[in-house]
Amino acid sequence: MYRAIWLSTMRQLDNEKDLIARCQNGETAFFGALYDRYVRIIYSFIYYKTFQKEVAEDLTSETFFKALSYIHTVDPHRSFQSWLYKIAQNCVIDHFRRERKTEHVDDVWDIADDTNLEIDANVSLQIGALRQELSQLSRVQRDIIIMRVWQELPYREIAEIVGKSEASCKMNYSRAVKHLKKVVPITVGSTDH
């Protein structure tokens, strides 16, 4: 019986550099392997910043088309994943700037108080009141929470994505948690399990 075989992270990273080099050499068929590796995590990141399935699909599509177009600019010594994240981030920002021309809006969290904003119903139910509290954080703090708690990215990657040092990211993370601890109501008598 056949089995699917998976590489270790270090081997994947080495192979990734080779894939990028081949794409930069014009062998764009190898981009498929990079796409397969990152499409879902990029989609989820975009979804966490838009909360709409159709918008997330459009922006994911835009992200990867841009990635292929600009792959010749990738620095092979830096993380490809963080480069994709930055493209995705910019696509999200551009999307909201187009949608809300008169407001400084970078993602859905900046308009958490807009009751007319369309978001997927399950998100509304799941996040609930926490949405207001999270929206009070700075974009960097919120992105760190999303990437660390929801997406489990390592600090090394987060630091490259947000453009700060690892130590700074951890500091921002702890400040965000401290702030949330103050403002998020904790139900008296609730227990965790």
């Binding site: 399950n122 799941q126 708690v149 949330l180 904790i186």
Partner: peptide, 14 residues
Amino acid sequence: RLLVKRLRLAKPDF
């Protein structure tokens, strides 16, 4: 602990 639990539970399912 409760805050972290809430943050994890708030992660949107999709």
